[in-house]
Write a protein that binds this DNA or RNA. Structure first.
Length: 762
DNA sequence: GAGCACTGC
């Protein structure tokens, strides 16, 4: 097997058709802008350093601890802060492209209510433009800069605070979930996640505390940024017509869309500093030979390693975990063999060090991709990554990119109420983003495992989230903010009539909307909870049924993505067995109850060391569980606000050690020994009646909505247990076939009771 | 009887 792959790898993957990306000549979009008569203003090219993204990743991993322990500027005196800021100004800021064009940019902002700014990587747009405006803000108002990701908001705030000469949380601050470092009176410039600004908007529909809104990375088109832009359009054509300025920052591709959305707002173009990247494509013949994408990636990596000079790592983009694990396994076997061969032939070719990277990988293993190799050892990293490395994570030292041209995407089918996970070709924009990863530090090369003519057939950009995701939560937000006519709302891109109607029906079925389509009291509460509407409904039901504590534990666990990691194939069976053995109730009742058992186990340990050990054995992220605790606490606080009588609700009290009081203690123990499983599962049924399936005589399951067969996913504790009269699942994905994930056993009577109950509540 | 990309409150 190994030998076979090796022979192939020494064969010919030739890349003969080659394009060199040269920003000045090959940027097709600039011409387009000119043609559109919008006269973009084009600024010139300068150096910049937009902060240390490597640090961001480390910082992300250690979260608060890192920030408070190592915050570099807090202990400096006012004078020292100012001195440092002055140095940064002279040595770095003034060299930035954006800084060089400060006056012109300010003029445009001054003359227009909305501008769209195309700032290339390295232009300094996210750090500098907000600072230009900081002196302009009047009577206690603020500037908000939104980011799609937490880490970006936090690290930008840190960087800008240093440049401005203050501590984080003074004039410059940030606000993200679980972490607010801003001062209502003092802070003038606030970096926030787009979700956070949306939440503020639910509280104050006019966003009166802000004078400038800067929507950064708008081209990523997350649902939340799309919603923000829609609300902002309403505001600036309505109540904030006179005194709110908006800057939309975007990559080139989407700039036109934003401009026309905001009444042909002017587009400014600031060039950044990236190094040229040469793109190579497969020939038609090589393309025919390419049967397996994993094999092609492996072959290409070996070829690049042996033909390119030492220095510079290889970053490969693959669609998913499965392909990555395969490729890593092959390369791990191959690398020592290749090394021997090279030595024997006296060839000076570095040893390949394969490293996987995907979100469901444990944080410790993720960090390995950032480690510098010992330069004396003559090694080269080959990082095999999902598109997590496309935007979320920047890996230093990459000079070569190998792109499979594929990604996985979850698509929500409104008609069916289920999502499918598909492997699809990426867009041109993604191709460019991926190849750009080779040109961050020096000139680079990108090898695309498809034909050059295939590139031209790719869609310009990926489908935006809003048209391929479940929009029940966005719709709830619109209702909460008081939008009456949702179909004709100022959608940047409408998800479509069907999607909207299906989504509204869903909200109606959950009791969030009444017969007239107005938000009910329950809907108000649901909108305030930072959860999907289904889960909010589960929580609210649990408050009625006096099992809020257990349900809260489980809901908090469900809110953390990748809490249970997918064990690698070698340890898969043993980890599954351990999980099975550790949840006596879970193996009877299913995965929700298993989570409750895991939660109890986790918090009952006396030391962090024990917790970590246990997590390691069970293949659970420790950090994930810390998030579970934070989320539980936050949900509890929200619920208290929603319902003041909760304070008196004994069941509600947390069993968590640090919060224990005497009475609490008693109750907590009592409850944990007698989880009212029936009540807990019934609460979940209130959110997931539609996600149920009935057991058939042939031991298969058929969904109670459409009668289709559905299989229990192998990751479920219920996988081997086929005797449940009915099942409920929190997720339904269609891959090779229809799979129910996170499955619980339910009784048919419950299903009848709840199904009728739900109607009754309408 | 067999496996899921990435974010956010």
């Amino acid at each position: 097997m190994v030998q076979k792959s090796m022979n192939k790898s020494s064969g010919n993957t030739k890349y003969i058709s080659k394009t060199v990306s040269n920003k000045k000549s090959s940027n097709p979009f600039r011409n387009k802008l000119h043609n559109k008569n919008k006269k973009p203003v084009i600024f010139q090219d300068f150096d910049e350093d937009e902060g240390d993204e490597f640090l961001d990743n480390v910082l992300d991993d250690n979260e608060h601890k890192f920030i408070s322990d190592k915050e570099p500027y807090r202990k400096l005196t006012q004078n020292e802060l100012k001195e440092r800021a002055a140095t940064i100004l002279e040595t770095q800021r003034k060299k930035l492209p954006v800084y060089q064009n400060k006056d012109q940019i300010l003029q445009y902002i001054n003359d227009n209510q909305v501008i769209v700014l195309i700032g290339e990587t390295g232009s300094g747009k996210s750090t500098q433009i907000p600072q230009f405006l900081i002196e302009n803000v009047t009577n206690g108002k603020k500037i908000a800069v939104t980011q799609p990701r937490r880490v970006a908001a936090i690290s930008l705030a840190g960087r800008v605070a240093a440049e401005y000469g203050c501590s984080i949380g003074e004039e410059v601050g940030y606000s993200v979930r679980f972490d607010n470092r801003s001062n209502d009176k003092k802070t003038k410039l606030k970096y926030v996640t787009d979700g956070m600004l949306l939440r503020e908007l639910m509280m104050d529909k006019e966003l009166n505390q802000y004078e400038y809104l800067i929507i950064d990375e708008a081209h990523e088109r997350t649902i939340l940024t799309d919603l923000l832009l829609g609300f902002i359009k309403e505001l600036i054509t309505g109540k904030r017509n006179k005194n709110l300025k908006v800057i939309v920052m975007s990559a080139t591709l989407q700039a036109d869309k934003f401009s026309s959305f905001f009444g042909d707002a002017p587009i400014l173009f600031v060039k950044g500093r990236t190094y040229p990247v040469e793109n190579y494509h497969l020939t038609a013949k090589d393309c025919e030979d390419q049967s397996d994408i994993v094999e092609s990636i492996v072959r290409s990596a070996i070829q690049v390693n042996s033909s390119e000079p030492f220095g510079g790592d290889i970053l490969c983009f693959l669609p998913g975990q499965e392909e990555i694990d395969k490729a890593v396994t092959i390369l791990e076997k191959l690398a020592p063999v290749l090394k021997e061969t090279y030595l024997k032939d006296k060839m000076k070719i570095p040893e390949l060090i394969p490293l996987p990277l995907y979100a469901a990988l444990s944080p410790a293993k993720q960090l390995l991709v950032f480690n510098k190799l010992n330069s004396k050892k003559f090694q080269r990293k080959v990082i095999l990554s999902t598109n997590i490395a496309e935007t979320s994570v920047t890996i230093p030292g990459v000079k070569y990119v190998i792109d499979s041209g594929l990604r996985k995407v979850k698509i929500w089918r409104h008609e069916l109420g289920l999502s499918t996970l598909l492997t699809v070709p990426i867009s041109k924009a993604s191709c460019q983003q991926r190849s750009g990863r080779a040109g961050r530090e020096s000139e680079g090369k990108c090898y695309r495992l498809f034909k050059e003519q295939d590139f031209s057939t790719l869609p310009a950009q990926s489908e935006s989230e809003i048209i391929r995701c479940d929009i029940s939560n966005p719709l709830l937000i619109l209702k909460k903010v008081g939008v009456k006519d949702i179909l004709n709302w100022s959608w940047l891109e409408s998800p479509g009539k069907t999607a909207i109607i299906v989504g509204l029906e869903e909200l109606y079925n959950l009791g969030a909307l009444n017969d007239s389509g107005e938000l009910t009291e329950k809907g108000e509460k649901m909108a305030l909870l930072p959860l999907a509407p289904h889960l909010s409904n589960v929580l609210l039901e649990a408050m009625e049924r006096n099992c809020i504590s257990s349900v809260l534990d489980i809901v908090a666990c469900l809110s953390v993505e990748n809490l249970l990691l997918n064990p690698s194939p070698e340890i898969r069976d043993s980890v599954n067995e351990k999980r099975y053995q550790s949840s006596p109730l879970g193996r009877k009742h299913g995965d929700l109850i298993m989570l409750k058992e895991f939660y109890d186990t986790f918090i009952d340990f006396d030391t962090v060391a024990e917790q970590k050990q246990w997590c390691h054995e069970m293949c659970i992220t420790y950090r994930g569980f810390q998030n579970v605790l934070k989320i539980r606490k936050q949900l509890k606080e929200y619920l208290k606000k929603i319902d003041a009588s909760l304070e008196k609700n004994q069941n509600f009290k947390s069993k968590k050690k640090e919060e224990k009081t005497e009475s609490d203690d008693e109750f907590g123990n009592e409850e944990s020994k007698n989880i009212d499983i029936e009540s807990v599962l019934k609460c979940f049924l209130y959110g997931f009646v539609k996600n149920t399936a009935i057991g058939m005589p042939d031991r298969s399951y058929r969904t109670s909505t459409t009668g289709e067969t559905i299989s229990i996913h192998p990751s479920s504790l219920m996988f081997s247990k086929k005797d449940s009269p009915a099942i409920m699942y929190t997720e339904y994905v269609f891959t090779s076939k229809g799979f129910a994930r996170n499955v619980s056993r339910i009784e048919l009577e419950w299903l009848q009771e709840i199904a009728m109950g739900v109607r009754k509540f309408k």
